[in-house]
Amino acid sequence: MNQLLRLLFYKVIVKFVVLIVLGLNVRHREKLPKQGPAILVANHNSHLDTMVLMSLFPTRLLATIQPVAAMDYFLRNRLLAWFALKIVGILPIKRTIKNRHDNPLLPCYEALANQRILILFPEGSRGEPEKLANFKGGIAKLAEQFPDVPVIPILLHGLGKSLPKGEALLVPFFCDVFIGDPMFWTGNKKTFIQKLKQSMEQLATEGQFSAWD
């Protein structure tokens, strides 16, 4: 039942919102992974980000993709938890670590070992609309643990205008999705994060974004 609802959610509601209400301008669609395991890394401005990324994949991959999301936020009540876990299909992780032995990334390790495609927002939270914040270290740990798994940087633009943090009213804009070249673990956390950020900034130069302030 939940699976059917999930399919309907993504193939009807999400498709309608993403393709008709918003409208996407996707560049380099061919660089998307055809199968798991893979890690999609995107900048995060809106709840719509996940919906847009999920909409890029064919139905056959729907069951393999999991957006990694904060447990404290999405599991804060039962209805939201049901929606987040069963319909959206998030992989919940803890944002705060209680003790040293607690590794919040363990569920991600497991998912990647199971050939999943993970969606990760290394800025940690949606933050200020249309601004790139600093990346957290989790993505580097994942890449280190799985050096053969491709990390695909994806730049999203416009979704923070359509539905920014703290707003409930969706205002239509055409949105840009630029997909970068897959990259792998560089052997060093600092250079890896740096390289990832660079490729995001590189992708940003491909577009011509109108002012919004």
Partner: peptide, 26 residues
């Protein structure tokens, strides 16, 4: 008209404060 207006709003500079105004315009 909707597609054209959306395209126009996406390429012109808009103000953050006008998000709701754009909604009324639609």
């Amino acid at each position: 008209s909707f597609l054209a207006l959306k395209e126009y709003f996406s390429i012109i500079p808009t103000r953050r404060a006008d998000r709701r105004i754009l909604f009324w315009a639609y």
